[in-house]
Design a protein around this nucleic acid. Structure first.
Lengths: 245, 245
DNA sequence: CGCGTCATTGAAATACTTCAACGACCGTGG
DNA sequence: CCACGGTCGTTGAAGTATTTCAATGACGCG
């Protein structure tokens, strides 16, 4: 259902995303054709392997990018939040499905409008380039995590990444209360673990007093420093061999 | 040591890479400042976390992109071969070290030349955008592999990816003889396994008659179809539950 | 209240790693 | 030419982290 044209004031895509890189005329052009659209948790925004006919920015909620193996096992290959853009210009098929991981609201435009703006503006091209480069960097960090970290480290890294997103400025000292953006099942698919292992690792952190679990989505991190050393050092205490140059 | 200016004729970067997207004047500008440089296996081409002062295309050999954890464990987050470009314009620091995985020859230019060409040409900007997008897609496929595949599947997928690169056209039928581009240790770092596990999985494929190992780098794949079903199906036979829509 | 979904916990199974020994290959120097 | 040492790969046995299977518990909704 078509909703009234959105006002861009206060939109996270304007403050942090592509729209902030546009000049007034370009923004006007985009917002003339834009409309807001809502998805319930689990709904597919862009299916895998199609050229999306449209393009959108996340206004609120969390979007997961999923790949599915023929045997049914799934892997989340990326997450997007408010201000992030879904899809890319220049009609390539998506290589992962974009699925709402919560109630999601997006600002939706036809792809030809985005492509018109993109092809004319150098700055917009650069913005896309930077965005994809950042995604690539995140993906490579995730490759490191999936390939070389233990379950304990993966969960610690996940909690830290959520905490850092909620505190973009400061360096995580003292108590940090965070809201987990995704369910246990999704966390497992994100970390390449089973749901049981995720649950057990969180339980261990709770037993050790590192975190308190208010409910399945609300976690208080008492000792972010412990999480950080967990991620950085495989060895729990006293690394015997300082690595040589 | 500075080598004579290279001729672009026959260079893989011209045939498959960025240089093919340049017009004559741009190519001339680039080749005027370019020179060839060689690296022995193990030498670092771009260190991690620096803004590279230069930019280059791989002419021959294999380059690995590595991340290292504080405890010393390593993960290869990408591989590049002839025709691929290392580094990106617009002065961002690299997020992985580029290291020669074999004898490597590159075509080397100062970054300001590349940036001049890039900022003036729309087509070059698009080329970079496409290249990074492709890298992102590969990285996301690798995330799937690392997160959800067994050791057996990882090794099968690796052999297939090497075989496919050697036969860019046809669909892998019959016997395929491949040369592994990287050592066992590097394969392990690429697949997120130990060297022993890689070795054992290859041994199992050999015992099952799927491959023959001529030497550590030369492998003949007798049954690529078996490798493909291994990757696609976790279950050896009879997937019971067809996944529902 | 009862049902369905999602999360937690326990016990058994297993895949992968770790530790350790051995073997193949290769260049060097006697 | 062959012995020697070094690196890299293979193989075996033991250990461990994670998965799998199964049961129970918490929460929301009709």
């Amino acid at each position: 259902m078509r909703r009234p044209r959105p006002s861009c004031a206060g939109c996270p895509a304007l403050e942090r995303g592509l729209c902030g890189a546009l000049d007034d005329a370009e923004l006007q052009k985009l917002s003339n054709t834009a409309w807001h659209r809502k998805f319930r948790s689990g709904q597919v925004i862009h299916p895998e392997g199609e050229v999306p006919s449209s393009f959108c920015a996340v206004v609120s909620g969390v979007v997961k990018f999923m790949k599915t193996l023929p045997n049914g096992s799934q892997q989340i290959v990326g997450l997007s939040g408010p201000g992030d853009f879904l899809g890319r210009p220049f009609g390539k098929e998506t290589h992962a499905a974009a699925v709402a991981a919560s109630e999601v609201e997006v600002c939706w435009f036809p792809r030809n409008v985005i492509e018109a703006v993109t092809s004319q503006s150098n700055e917009v091209k650069s913005w896309f380039f930077e965005a994809v480069s950042d995604d690539l960097e995140k993906a490579q960090n995730w490759i490191m995590l999936l390939g070389r970290m233990t379950a304990e480290q993966k969960v610690a890294a996940f909690l830290l990444s959520v905490a850092r997103k909620s505190r973009p400025d400061g360096p995580l000292v003292g108590e940090v209360s965070v809201e987990l953006p995704i369910s246990r099942t999704e966390t497992a698919d994100y970390l390449g673990l089973t749901i049981e292992t995720v649950s057990r690792q969180i339980a261990r952190l709770r037993e050790r007093g590192v975190v308190t679990v208010r409910n399945t989505r609300q976690v208080v991190i008492h000792r972010p420093d412990v999480l950080e050393t967990t991620v950085e050092n495989v060895m729990p205490v006293a690394g015997p061999e300082p690595l040589r140059a």
